[in-house]
């Protein structure tokens, strides 16, 4: 039987990460222990990526912006909970890789911890993964793209700016 675990475990990225410091074992252990929810480390990663992904789709007002980012991260967590175990596991591995400082630096090319990473660095990371020749990075970018955009545009807060009136009100 073939395995679907294309992130880390069987992929070239996994071999490289393993060589980079044995962090994968640690991360897999953490992932297994918190199989159902997005853990704090993953949340920190997504919180940093959301503004770079959404750009000026996010409100400029700092309070509204903070709430919008938080709600988007919540939406990503909800979406992950609804995915099949194999896909969830891959995302845990991806977030594990991004959260672990040596692999964050080596593969995402982000020098600072996510909490303090300059916006330009995060944007540059996204662009590199989008344009990467490495299919694992491209598919990871696609996964982040799909999760974050689906979470933000599920939120009625996002609708006025794009001229979407919301569903017809049959059920007022």
């Amino acid at each position: 039987m073939i395995t679907r675990r294309t992130f880390l475990v069987t992929g070239a990225l996994g071999a490289a990460a393993l060589a980079a410091g044995g962090g994968v074992t640690l991360l897999r252990h953490k992932g297994a222990a918190r199989a159902e929810a997005m853990d704090g480390d993953a949340r920190t990663v997504v919180e940093a990526i959301v503004p770079a992904m959404l750009g000026d789709a996010l409100p400029a007002d700092p309070d509204l912006r903070g709430a919008a980012v938080g709600e988007t991260v919540d939406g990503v967590a909800r979406a992950m909970a609804g995915l099949p175990p194999a896909a969830r596991k891959e995302l845990h591995q991806l977030f594990g890789l991004l959260a672990f400082a040596p692999t964050r630096l080596a593969f995402a090319g982000v020098a600072s911890p996510w909490q303090s990473a300059p916006a330009a660095d995060v944007e540059a990371f996204l662009a590199r993964w989008r344009d990467s020749r490495w299919s694992l990075k491209k598919s990871a970018y696609d996964a982040l793209h799909q999760l974050i955009y689906a979470a933000w545009y599920a939120n009625p807060r996002s609708w006025p700016a794009i001229g979407y009136p919301g569903p017809p009100k049959l059920f007022a």
Binding site: A52, D56, I162, G163
Partner: peptide, 25 residues
């Protein structure tokens, strides 16, 4: 053409993606 379907289909990210989403209608 609904918001999520449009957003996950339009490539790229950041302001360029937002620019196209604001023209959804």
């Amino acid at each position: 053409i609904h918001p999520i379907l449009a957003a996950i289909t339009l490539p790229g990210h950041g302001d360029a993606h937002g620019h196209w989403m604001r023209r959804l209608p």
